[in-house]
Write a protein that binds this DNA or RNA. Structure first.
Lengths: 74, 74
DNA sequence: AAAATAGTTAACATATATGTTAACCAATGA
DNA sequence: TCATTGGTTAACATATATGTTAACTATTTT
């Protein structure tokens, strides 16, 4: 699993969960206190996020941080 | 949970698992292709690691990345 | 048609993670 | 005693994540 593949997996997980909860990327970004552009960057897999960024997102989505990481069976 | 608390939790998890597997910090660092000083920094909770760094460590420890994150019930 | 909402992308500054070296300290073994 | 092993800490350069603004597209609403 390359770094890029990992980033893409995480981005897809975030988007999937966000859509399941029917939250706009704008709203999620706002809950995390960053701009929608940063959220877009993350969901597109263009960044290798820090664990604290993932933590903030998981809090905003009301899920465990592990859920953002799983599915691809890391 | 502050950023620092999260970092410390992750550092402790890594150290605990590493010791359970009886691997030296030096050896673990080497498996991840970084220096022992960087490993020490991580285990001490002095850094907010990227997900790829955690991924490399989880591979070196032969565990799932989730294991590094859990226990503190994030 | 105009305004609002949702998202993407590029560019930029700034903060910080990473990678490294070197100087240390302890404990242990030759 | 000296060398080795395991770990810590500081300092530094470099890469990159974060935070932001702005321009842009598309869709929907008034």
């Amino acid at each position: 699993m390359t770094k890029k593949e990992l980033q893409i997996l995480i981005g897809k997980n975030i988007r999937r969960i966000r859509l399941e909860k029917k939250i706009s990327a704008q709203e999620l970004a706002s809950r995390c206190n960053f701009e929608k552009s940063a959220m877009s960057r993350l969901e597109a897999g263009n960044t290798n996020p820090t664990v604290y960024t993932l933590y903030k997102i998981s809090q905003a989505l009301d899920i465990k941080i592990e859920e953002i990481m799983q599915k691809g069976d890391l």
